[in-house]
Design a protein around this nucleic acid. Structure first.
Lengths: 208, 208
DNA sequence: CCGGGGTGTTACCTCGGGTAACATCGTCGG
DNA sequence: CCGACGATGTTACCCGAGGTAACACCCCGG
């Protein structure tokens, strides 16, 4: 028989143990969960990165496809952005442990430089870049802006989503609004607070 | 004599070896660079995380203070934001290896969850949060928005800065503009591209 | 019957973080 | 002067994790 079925079983086992123990689960633990021993894992996946990659590609499929679909929705831009944000947050909410696996770059990456975005997120960033390039009129700077924004937006959602997942300070809907507001320039539009400290007058020290 | 001087020497050695070999340098290598052996390092820093923390706190001081100062500059908001962005990018540009150390979370973090933002960046995020809270009038949602934005902006700059450092696609000034434009809602304000693909008409495939 | 491709095993290597136990030197107080 | 203390340093070791070698089984097609 083709090796695919067993491979799937092994991936399922790895999935379970990572669900349970987090992304730093050892190969031994994964093998044990699958009811086998290490060398078999290595036969199928080469090395740990291979396993992780196979695992991520599996889940990335879903998330990436969902994000891609959301990016292509025929909505007003703001609604589309909210839809994408909601899709991503819903995805990471559903499977926190797997999500950590997706977002954490491999610890030991001696060859190249340590990229802040894991491969799965890199793909999402590229997706956003393409969407911006093809849908938004940005003038001469379009390529640079689209690339920088793709990475930037992805990183923003990664960090903010991570925090949200951790502390759950509000509903998903509100979080989507908060991030969309940020992207919509609400930071630029809001008024100054009148109570702002004056730089030249260190009058009464407030706190800190 | 107090242990501080030796500690400084050890940190200097660690600094050199990390500058040379990247953040994954082994304790052995660091000890060798310092001309001593491992146990001494452990006496001074407890464990690897302790060393890394001491190292990061050292450099964080500079970057964090610079960012904090930039956040407090008496400029128009847009100029202030650009100033902060430029400060951060200049900081990571100056010492790429150290910057990776700052931004890469410790690989093995079994206890808590794997936070996307390393401690140093967490501090920057909090700094931004405080600045937004104290300077911008955001209405009833101020706390939530400020926190989410603090993390989000930090993650955005982390990811975008990482990419910029890696590929250097443009000058720092242009990069600052690109990110500030994103935060200023240029994504929202830009016009739709007329050439946008229609969801119901898969006419002629362009170039993937 | 045999051979190959799948399954699986035990036992081992290497390397890195971390520790125990021991030796040394200088200084301070009695 | 001498012992104690606190710092310096050492060698040798433990442990766990990634990774591999060598061997064994099982089934199926020629």
């Amino acid at each position: 028989m083709s090796r695919e079925p067993r491979r799937e079983q092994l991936l399922n086992a790895a999935d379970r143990v990572i669900q349970r123990e987090g992304p730093s689960a050892s190969m031994n633990a994964i093998a044990a969960e699958a009811g086998i021993t290490k060398p078999i894992l290595y036969r199928h996946f080469g090395d740990r990165n291979g396993l992780i990659r196979a695992l991520t590609e599996r889940h990335t499929g879903g998330l990436l496809a969902a994000v891609r679909a959301a990016l292509a929705e025929p909505l007003e831009r703001r609604d589309r952005v909210e839809h994408v944000l909601d899709t991503y947050l819903a995805g990471i909410e559903a499977r926190p442990q797997v999500y950590r696996l997706l977002t954490h770059p491999e610890p030991g990456d001696p060859s190249g430089a340590g990229n802040a975005l894991a491969p799965a997120l890199r793909q999402i960033a590229e997706e956003i870049t393409r969407a911006v390039q093809s849908q938004v009129d940005l003038g001469a700077d379009r390529d640079l802006l689209a690339e920088a924004w793709g990475r930037g937006i992805t990183g923003m959602v990664l960090a903010a989503g991570d925090w949200w997942l951790e502390t759950k300070p509000c509903s998903r809907t509100r979080m989507v609004q908060a991030l969309a507001d940020l992207l919509w320039g609400r930071l630029a539009a809001a008024a100054d607070l009148p109570t702002a400290v004056l730089p030249t007058a260190p009058a009464e020290p407030a706190a800190d």
